[in-house]
Design a binder for these strands. Structure first.
Lengths: 240, 240
DNA sequence: ACTTATGCAATAGTCATACTTATGGCCCAG
DNA sequence: CTGGGCCATAAGTATGACTATTGCATAAGT
C-alpha cells in the first residue's frame, strides 16, 4: 500500500531531523519526488497533520512544525523515534513514563483487577521466577512473560490510557533491555521476588505494597539502564 | 474546511458510541450521507485509521475498532471524549494520569529546570497565593496561573512526553474543576502553601520535596473531585 | 520613510471520473 | 465437509478540472 509507505518515509525523515522544523514542502514537490499521485501525498500529509508534525497552509505549503508541538505520545511517532538516531533518548523518555505510570497502575490494579487477572498475574510472576531460576533470563520466553506481566498490570488498572500507552510501548522497552544485555540470564533474586510481591499485593488488594513493588522494579530497570548508559545500542539500520 | 468538519463529526460519533465498535461503513455511504466527495471522506478516514478508531479493508468497508484498540492518548480523541457523554469518565482517567505523571515531572524538574523556569515557577506560585488570598480562587486569572504553573512543571521536566500530554490536557482538567465549583474562591491555605513548597523545592533542586508537594496537590484535587463525585457536570451540548 | 490597501499568483482544498487491486463470500467439485 | 476457483465488492490510486484562501509584492497615501 503506497499510503503507508509514504507516511512512514515522511514520518521518519521528520522524526529523524532530515526534514527539520521549518522545512516547507509542497504537494507538487512530493508528488514529483516520490513519483506518486496527489491522492497518496495528500492522504499521508493529512495524517502527519493530525499528528501535528506538519501544518498545511494555502499559498505556503506544508511546513514541518517544531518538535515540542508534535503529539509526543502518538504510537506511530514513538515507533519512528525508536527506529532512528534518537532511539536512546526515546527509550529514556519511555523509561520515565513507565516510572510515572506503572506504580500508579499497580495501585489501581490492586483495587480494580478482576479475579481472573489477579490469578493470571500471580501465574506470570511464578513463570518469571521459574524461568529466571533456570538461567533463562535472556530467553524469548522470559521476555514474553515479562511483557505480559507489565501489560496485564496496566490493563488491570482500569485506566484505558495506562493500558493503551503501556500496552504499546512496553514490548519495545523490554525487548530493548534484552537486546542491550540488561536482562541477565540469571536475574537477581530480588527482581524475581519483586514481581512475586507485586503480583501477590495486587492479588490481595494491597495497593501500597503493589505500588512499592512495581516502583522498585521500574527503578531497578532504570538503574541498570543508567549503569549501562555508555553501552550505546546502535540505532537500527535507517530503513523502515 | 470540510475535512476537519467531517473528521470531528465521525470522530465524535465513534467516541460517543453512536457508531459502536463493529459498525461497518463504506466510503460510498459516507459520501452519500454527508454529500461530500470521495476525497474528503477518504482523507478523514485515513486520519481515523491512523488513530486506530477504524480499520479500512477492501471488500469489507470501514469497520469501527473496539475501544481498547484506540490510541487512548491521542489529543483529538481525548477532546472528543471530553465533549461527549463520557466526559466524567475521561476526566477521571486524566486525573489518574496527572496523579502518575506530575509527581515524577516535578522530581525531574527539580534536577533539570533552567534558572529562568525555576524563577518563573516561584513567581507563578506567588501569584496563585496572592490571588487566593484575595478570594479570587474562582477567577480566570487564578485558573490561568494554575494552568501555567502545572504546564511549566511538565515542560521543565525535560521529558517531552510529559510536556506534551500535560500541556494539552491540563487546561481542560483544571477548567473543569473551576466549572464544577471545585476551585473555591478562598483556596485552602494548605493548597497555596503546597504550590509554594513545590515551586521552592523545584527551584532549590530538592527532588523529593518537589515530588511530595505535587503529589499532595494532585491528591487534594482528586479528593475534592471524589467528594463532589455525585455533582455531575452536564455534558456539553453535543455539537462540536 | 512608513503605513495601508489592493491585486495576483501560489498552493492547498474539493470534485468528478476512470482504472487498478485485494479480498471475502459464494458456488461447485471431489 | 473441505478445498479451490471465480466474481463482485469496496478500498486504493491516478488524473484533470475547478474552487478557495492567503501571502507577498506593488502601488498609493500620509
Amino acid at each position: 500500500m503506497l499510503h503507508a509507505g509514504l507516511l512512514d518515509d515522511l514520518g521518519c525523515r521528520i522524526a529523524w531531523g532530515r526534514l527539520p522544523p521549518g522545512t516547507v514542502l509542497t504537494t507538487a514537490a512530493l508528488e514529483a519526488e516520490y513519483g506518486l499521485s496527489r491522492t497518496v501525498v495528500r492522504e499521508a500529509v493529512r495524517v502527519l497533520e493530525a499528528m501535528r508534525l506538519v501544518e498545511a497552509r494555502r499559498h505556503v505549503g506544508i511546513t514541518v512544525r517544531p518538535r515540542p508541538e508534535w503529539n509526543a505520545l502518538d504510537v506511530r511517532l514513538i515507533g519512528w523515534n525508536l527506529a532512528g538516531p534518537g532511539r536512546q533518548e526515546e527509550l529514556g523518555s519511555l523509561m520515565e513514563l513507565r516510572q510515572a505510570i506503572e506504580p500508579v497502575a499497580a495501585r489501581l490494579a490492586a483495587t480494580r483487577a478482576s479475579a481472573g487477572d489477579r490469578a493470571e498475574l500471580v501465574a506470570l510472576a511464578s513463570r518469571l521466577r521459574d524461568l529466571g531460576r533456570q538461567g533463562l533470563g535472556e530467553s524469548q520466553e522470559y521476555l514474553t512473560a515479562d511483557i505480559d506481566f507489565h501489560r496485564l498490570v496496566a490493563q488491570s488498572s482500569g485506566n484505558y490510557m495506562f493500558a493503551g500507552v503501556l500496552g504499546e510501548v512496553i514490548g519495545e522497552v523490554l525487548a530493548g533491555r534484552t537486546r542491550l544485555g540488561l536482562s541477565p540470564a540469571l536475574p537477581a533474586v530480588e527482581a524475581l521476588d519483586l514481581h512475586q510481591i507485586a503480583a501477590l499485593a495486587i492479588s490481595g488488594g494491597d495497593a501500597d505494597a503493589a505500588e512499592r513493588a512495581i516502583r522498585a522494579i521500574v527503578e531497578e530497570a532504570r538503574r541498570a539502564a543508567l549503569d549501562a548508559g555508555a553501552a550505546t545500542e546502535p540505532a537500527p539500520a535507517a530503513t523502515v
